[in-house]
Write a protein that binds this DNA or RNA. Structure first.
Lengths: 372, 372
DNA sequence: ACCGAAGATTTGATCGTTCAAACTTTGAGG
DNA sequence: CCTCAAAGTTTGAACGATCAAATCTTCGGT
């Protein structure tokens, strides 16, 4: 096997010119059918494949999207959300014949340095950001430099939720928590508590609001009454467990609980079980593999839809190349995905008969799950 | 801002030729110090960055490594191992100024199709394979085509463990399970059970052997006695839970348990707790985030070392480019990483005093962990 | 049968870099 | 002061594709 075939080889074989071969590949519509077929079979016979780097050099496009991966260390039970988003992104990318390129960075400055290098080296056409924060310097830089990007996570606190320069996708956490709360209300519960993160995180406050609105509109609770049913803990199982233990020993007569994350919910589950309440309903958020494993009800972020939305914002509904930054468009500059309830045994009043375990999650519930 | 600066711009500014600039970048040793400094400051002043695609076109190297990501769906509690390996790979790649490119495939044929396309398009220099199986067709294809690659996971069953055409890294599961077993033996336990996967998976059989050898050499148990202490379950929490419940109700007087995975261990923990044995020691394997969250002792795969080994095999100890397939070398063609025990409360005889919870893992044990 | 415009195809230039070979400078040795 | 090899630098070509403009075909209208 000598060399890999090039456009010229194909052209020669098909009795046409380079450019016609290129046209068959990139704009088949303008080539006459007869010639197109001839070229196509030449391509097939020679097993020709376009040389990606050559094309990129000429077009100044890389068909690649850069994603930063957090360092290995900070990767808790809910870190898997971003990993699953990455999987979903990769699948979407494949469908659009785009590629995902990874890089790591220890802090924002380093991350921005990577942006610069990758942009200047024409390594990537756009970036996808995760873990966005209030006044995120990465977003500022990208917007100022007019580099195409989409953020997973609203640019919280910033007024520019509709700024055409800041594209974002996010999951409607408020709606998700509201759905979970309403599900529990529908099952007859009234004293439904909420376990969240300390106030101040955009995501956390948003999710809490879902519980508040559901409770307020169904039961007409006052702010004071709501506050009584609430407690907070830092992300992580043990803190959640402690928080719920305190709430229970403090005399609050809870019947059910909605949590801001699966980690919190797992800690809460442990606490209520320990307190001798085997059927106490608990809802998590994120629908992580752990939730599935232990049979914890949760709110699924629908990461496939999030990823699809990401690409819609980046490339248009069906486009095959990244839109330039700030390109005017009729579409809204963001996507808010409504999540989906996944009801498992942890939120059932009665344990599902069959295998009489008293602890939830004693059977893989794939076929028992109820998505609404 | 007009155009991005090119080598020519830098050359002009430094008063040298293109090629000298290129040399400063690629083989600084052959450039005289004075000129090198001049060029370097010109680069800095202009903010020049080499155009990656142009370089790739010329050198026929992409400085990129392809990794297949499994579809979103099959991504259980232990699927996170591969995600964490991916993180570690990305960090290593950064250190070698390489990049990681992702793609997905539904089956082997599709995956091989991707290999072909990526290789021919000069998109990647090498591949990293995960989830290798007995007689893996992907490995056969890559070896036959002489495409550089490294497999994470021994090519089980194949005789060619030392075949110079098949590079691999793996974690010494046997050693890991042996360490866990010996740890329990050292704490005075004798009736230590093993919960594994059904026989036939290379990885599973290897791990079981670690328990067998530890038990046999410490206590001199017969094969029959060993078999009594063993049970199996398919990967997943619920099956493990059932299996251990049966073992316990079957009358086996277990004192402790070593498991082939964290999922199994989680199921086992639930079962022993349910059986009223709050301090029954359980060991998992993989040290997933869940293990940390619930305070489960486990065996850490040291994925950073695995990733480092991957790159050593691919590029040599310090090399900056992928070695050609089958390049002779004195080094062994594989790396077997010895994992590390992470002892948490689940394997302590007595609960750690402080917060008198009776269930293990009630506090994030980062500072309580004991790595040996 | 001829014209012209639209359609189809070809030609020459170019993207930014590195390779290979040619050329120029340096410096030790006689 | 000259020679010659080694060290340093420059020049022309090439990597494989697409763009822009030029050329050649086709075909309806008169």
């Amino acid at each position: 096997m000598a060399q890999l075939p090039t456009v010229d080889d194909v052209a020669q074989r098909a009795g046409v010119s380079r450019q016609t071969v290129s046209n068959v590949l990139n704009s088949p519509a303008i080539v006459r059918d007869a010639t197109r077929l001839r070229v196509e079979s030449a391509i097939a016979e020679l097993g020709y494949r376009p040389h990606a780097s050559a094309r990129r050099l000429r077009t100044q496009l890389s068909s690649t999207i850069g994603v930063r991966l957090d360092p290995l260390s900070k990767n808790g039970i809910s870190g898997s959300v971003l990993d699953r988003y990455l999987h979903a992104l990769t699948e979407q990318a494949d469908a659009r014949s785009m590629r995902i390129m990874l890089f790591t960075a220890a802090d924002d400055d380093e991350e921005i340095g990577h942006y610069e290098r990758l942009r200047d080296g024409a390594d990537v056409d756009a970036f996808v950001l995760t873990g966005t924060r209030y006044d995120d310097p990465r977003i500022e830089w990208l917007a100022r430099q007019r580099v195409p990007f989409v953020a997973f996570g609203r640019p919280w606190g910033a007024e520019h939720l509709d700024d055409p320069d800041r594209l974002w996708v996010d999951v409607d956490g408020q709606a998700g928590v509201r759905m979970a709360t309403e599900h529990l209300l529908g099952r007859g519960h009234r004293r439904i508590g909420y376990l969240g993160w300390p106030a101040g995180s955009g995501t956390g406050d948003d999710r809490r609001r879902g519980w508040e609105t559901a409770m307020a509109s169904a039961l007409g609770l006052t702010a004071r009454e709501l506050a009584e049913l609430t407690t907070v803990a830092d992300e992580g199982v043990p803190g959640a467990r402690r928080a719920i233990e305190e709430l229970l020993t403090g005399g609050t007569d809870l019947e059910a609980l909605v949590c801001a994350s699966d980690s919190l919910a797992l800690g809460a589950m442990m606490a209520v079980r320990e307190a001798g309440l085997p059927h106490f309903p608990v809802f998590g958020f994120d629908n992580t593999p752990v939730a599935q494993a232990v049979g914890l009800s949760s709110v699924d972020q629908r990461l496939a839809d999030v990823a699809a939305g990401t690409f819609e914002l980046l490339m248009g509904a069906t486009g095959r190349r990244v839109l330039p930054h700030g390109s005017e468009s009729d579409d809204p500059r963001h996507r808010l995905i409504t999540p989906q309830l996944v009801v498992r045994r942890s939120s059932h009043l009665e344990p599902v008969e069959e295998a009489g375990g008293t602890m939830p999650g004693d059977h893989e519930s794939t076929d028992k799950e109820q998505r609404t």
